[in-house]
Design a protein around this nucleic acid. Structure first.
Lengths: 132, 132
DNA sequence: CCGTATCCTCCTCGATACTG
DNA sequence: CAGTATCGAGGAGGATACGG
């Protein structure tokens, strides 16, 4: 039956494309940067090493779970280093690696475009919404 | 009761932070760019005007629903223009606005960092995974 | 102080079917 | 050709409670 075959072809094409996207470096980077808390963490650590609780205070809206999870992901990616000072209570600090620091210009480029142009985007949205 | 008050304070702090993030230009831009299909659409349109079906063919993995939805969002944001040629069947074309074109260097910066450094990230992940 | 473990909710996205 | 409408599954992320 022709329709079934067409549906199967579409499914297969999608699976292949998903595999392509999963392997795509840009896609992977975009997924990381888009994580709700990554840009904020990178910006906080741009000024130097910070303790867990300092980051948590700076980024007042983050939950413990998400902060820990995001920091772990970034550590795994080699973007930052986690160092534990064994004391009571323990002291855990995070700082950017050179790889992490090399990401800062990209974050700043995004920030700069946003600050220069999101106003125009807002205007465009208002115009669109009144027309439709 | 002290615990209830602390919980309420946390909730309130989070709500304020959420409002801050919702208004943050960088956050808004990041959310757009991170949309699964936006970077691909921008890249496709970087070469010039394209018809709906051309974009759909180029981005083989996208569903009709998501392609239309993403294109509408980008049109609403003033990133691209949708033009309809009344014929049978109708012909709908999309092209970047100057605002949309100004976004291309940002996308390219992301792409460039990814292509240069995601290899290092992959290596870091492998090292991390074998250690843990 | 710095987490881990569960549960639960919202929201995105894909599948499918239908239309001018 | 270029959509729109509806439904359902899965995952992200927050609330809460507990642990070294």
């Amino acid at each position: 039956m022709a329709t079934a075959t067409a549906a199967q072809r579409r499914r297969r094409a999608r699976e292949e494309f998903d595999a392509f996207l999963a392997a795509c470096p840009s896609r992977q980077l975009l997924d990381r940067l888009a994580d709700k808390w990554v840009a904020l963490i990178l910006t906080a650590l741009a000024e130097g090493e910070q303790r867990y609780s300092e980051i948590a205070r700076t980024i007042a809206g983050v939950s413990q779970k998400m902060l820990t999870q995001t920091l772990r992901n970034l550590e795994r990616d080699g973007i930052l280093i986690r160092s534990i000072t064994p004391a009571v209570p323990v002291r855990v600090s995070y700082r950017l690696t050179p790889l992490g620091e090399s990401l800062l210009p990209v974050v700043r480029a995004i920030k700069q475009w946003a600050e220069q142009n999101m106003g125009a985007v807002q205007d465009a949205r208002r115009r669109y919404d009144t027309r439709h």
